[in-house]
Design a protein around this nucleic acid. Structure first.
Length: 490
DNA sequence: ATGTGC
């Protein structure tokens, strides 16, 4: 009987419009909610919101110690326990930590390199450039790196992130300054990382992976905010390089391993779970802290991964254009995590306090003046990087004031799927998608044609619709739009 | 996302 009351539709009917682009699931819509749900959506996007994702927002609101709201960004869709596009903050003492709130691909994220090249410089060499990037950066499921990390090197990567790469010749000091958290979260601990996770990690430092991960050559076709663009070193017609990947097999394994101990902990500490996938443990318990410190290691692994790929990307470009690095201006603009939990200071009910912010398919968007924004960007807020799907536009935004008030300093992360991988493979043929893209001037090089079908532009929401929601809310302001010229995929 | 399965 209860099932019937909770049937699909009821939760959608309970949605209340709070403001333009803000919808609420009131407390009590499902029994046990501690806070309301908040979904940031335009009227245009509300129709393709999955009811199951909405249900997940309400479920997350039931977890102990959740602060203010269980939130979902405009690109939200169904995920493991928590929706992808979900943001949830938990009290440092009374709250919980949950692997489902971070996701399997710990610190899946994006970085952007600028250059002094123009679209006219690269068009004639796009075939060679795409091919050489594909040759240089291993891509695909199970792909292995030219690098083999020793045990002590792996520890170093887990604890120090991008710094390992920079100290070993894969980048420069400025790369660390222009990266969220300096390319490292402090407080990692390798003692609860399994031998299996280590084994998977050793040969994969410097690999792209598969799925929606990519390395893309782009050009800026539109500037929305001239002043901020200048601060970020961006201008119209300029070529940029975007790297989107995560912590590969090691992050996946760390998540899998700790889900087991955290599930047991949920029972041990008698936490009522509306969904087993929301397994969590009291934030200060050993189980939660062991997961958290291992998750930090995976996050650091991912930053180091993107740093090594950055180095190989620079080598290829310098080789093709026969210029040195200074002339090419291949500076890192910024690097953001899309899947991570962090202990941050936020204001709740007028009081400053530390909370564990879980961002799963969401980007940190700290505003001007925030102490964690690099000095060079301090006046304008951190860069917020939003990749498009294959063949579509990507965006640079800057963190804006409202983010701290309404979303724990967070914005959206991308376009968001509208069609399953399985469905996409039936609907599209990789070779056809590839030749269509090439006709529109976009080179594609992939390890597997099936990935091209799964990632066809049609299977994603429009990234510009998603970006417009966070822009209009004042969470993050639009700075520039990039269009793809060539893409390397797994 | 993932050495693509409980």
């Amino acid at each position: 009987m209860e099932e019937e009351q909770e049937g699909q539709g009821s939760i959608q009917e309970s949605l209340k419009r709070i403001d333009n682009n803000i919808w609420e699931i009131p407390i009590g819509t499902k029994p046990g909610m501690n806070v309301p749900g908040r979904i940031f959506l335009s009227d245009k996007l509300i129709h393709n919101l999955e009811p199951e994702a909405l249900d997940q927002v309400a479920n997350v609101a039931m977890l102990p110690g959740i602060q203010k709201y269980s939130m979902a960004m405009p690109d939200a869709h169904l995920g493991y326990g928590f929706p992808i596009g979900g943001v949830a903050a938990f009290d440092e003492e009374e709250g919980v930590i949950s692997p489902g709130g971070v996701g399997f691909d710990i610190n899946c994220g994006v970085r952007l390199l600028r250059s002094n090249l123009t679209v006219d410089d690269v068009r004639p060499v796009m075939k060679e450039l795409t091919e050489k990037l594909f040759q240089s950066v291993p891509a695909g499921v199970g792909s292995k790196s030219r690098l083999r990390a020793s045990d002590s090197e792996l520890d170093d990567i887990f604890l120090h992130g991008s710094r390992w790469a920079v100290e070993n010749g894969y980048g420069v000091e400025a790369d660390l300054e222009h990266c969220e958290g300096g390319g490292c979260i402090e407080g990692g601990d390798v003692s609860h990382i399994s031998a299996k996770a280590r084994k998977r990690g050793k040969p994969q430092a410097g690999t792209l992976g598969s799925g929606n991960h990519f390395l893309e050559v782009q050009y800026i076709d539109q500037i929305y905010d001239q002043e901020v663009a200048e601060k970020f070193g961006l201008e119209e017609g300029q070529v940029t390089f975007m790297i989107h990947c995560g912590s590969r097999g090691t992050g996946h394994q760390i998540c899998t391993d700790h889900l087991r101990t955290i599930s047991q902990a949920s029972k041990k500490y008698k936490i009522a779970l509306p969904d087993k996938q929301l397994a969590c443990a009291p934030a200060q318990s050993d189980e939660a802290q062991n997961y958290f410190r291992s998750m930090i290691c995976a996050a650091n692994y991912a930053w180091n991964n993107r740093q090594i790929i950055t180095h190989w990307t620079r080598e290829v470009i310098s080789d093709i254009f026969r210029s040195d690095m200074d002339e090419l201006g291949l500076d890192l603009v910024y690097d953001v995590a899309h899947n991570v939990a962090k202990l941050e200071e936020h204001t709740v009910d007028g009081k400053k306090k530390n909370v564990y912010v879980h961002r799963k398919g969401a980007t940190r968007a700290f505003p001007p003046g925030h102490k964690e924004v690099p000095q060079a960007y301090r006046d304008v807020g951190q860069p917020v990087l939003i990749p498009g799907s294959m063949g579509t536009a990507s965006f640079v935004l800057h963190g804006a004031e409202a983010s701290m008030d309404i979303s724990f300093g967070s914005a959206c992360h991308g376009a968001g799927r509208v069609m399953s991988r399985a469905h996409a493979k039936k609907e599209f043929h990789g070779e056809d998608v590839k030749s269509d893209l090439e006709k529109s001037g976009i080179m594609v090089r992939a390890a597997h044609p099936s990935v091209i079908a799964e990632e066809a532009p049609e299977v994603y929401k429009s990234s510009s619709d998603v970006v417009n929601v966070v822009h209009d809310l004042g969470i993050a302001g639009k700075v520039a739009r990039m269009m793809p010229l060539g893409v390397v995929k797994g």
